[in-house]
């Protein structure tokens, strides 16, 4: 009995010591994944994902509680990049995926109040007081923070129109 207790204790102690030393040797600082993912996010903290800011979303994605595709402004390309980095597979985008949305201004009802300009985190809206505003499509992150600001509902989110240079063949219908 004593031999059994003693031997197991010694065994445990020796192995524990070895692992302790190994832990010193192979120590890994923090979780680099969260920082890496956060660096990929748009950083506009728009909150469309339901997390408090991009940092929160990055932490949730790294922890596996949020999908890599949870960021609407980042769109498919961001989702794919993150999924690749994490080594997980992404649910294929459905046919109803309209692609990224960007803000658009109905010029006939814009009153030039500049509220949207102040709300825009990327300075994607041009225009001055009492002038009709305009959205720079390339700079719009699609965060939709301007939509609620507009007093006349002139702001709408719309899919980016496909141009000739960007068009490509759809995937052939499944066979077999």
């Amino acid at each position: 009995m004593l031999a059994a207790i003693l031997s197991l204790t010694i065994l445990g102690a020796v192995l524990g010591a070895v692992l302790g030393v190994a832990n010193r040797f192979f120590h890994v600082e923090g979780n680099p994944l969260v920082e890496e993912i956060e660096a990929l996010m748009p950083g506009s903290n728009c909150g469309q994902c339901g997390f408090p800011g991009c940092a929160g979303a990055a932490a949730a994605i790294a922890a596996g509680t949020a999908s890599p595709a949870c960021c609407p402004p980042g769109g498919r390309s961001l989702a794919v990049t993150i999924a690749q980095r994490m080594g997980v597979s992404l649910a294929p985008g459905g046919a109803d995926d309209p692609g990224p949305l960007v803000a658009d201004i109905d010029e006939s009802i814009c009153i030039g109040c500049t509220r949207c300009i102040r709300a825009c985190p990327t300075d994607a809206i041009l225009g001055g007081p009492k002038q009709i505003h305009n959205v720079l499509r390339d700079a719009c992150s699609g965060c939709a923070q301007c939509i609620d600001q507009c007093p006349t509902e002139a702001m709408v989110m719309q899919p980016v129109p496909i141009t000739l240079q960007q068009w490509f063949w759809p995937k052939p219908a499944l066979q077999g």
Binding site: V18, L19, N23, F25, F26
Partner: peptide, 8 residues
């Protein structure tokens, strides 16, 4: 031990 080594 293996786990620590691979993680590193």
């Amino acid at each position: 031990f293996t786990e620590m080594a691979i993680r590193k």
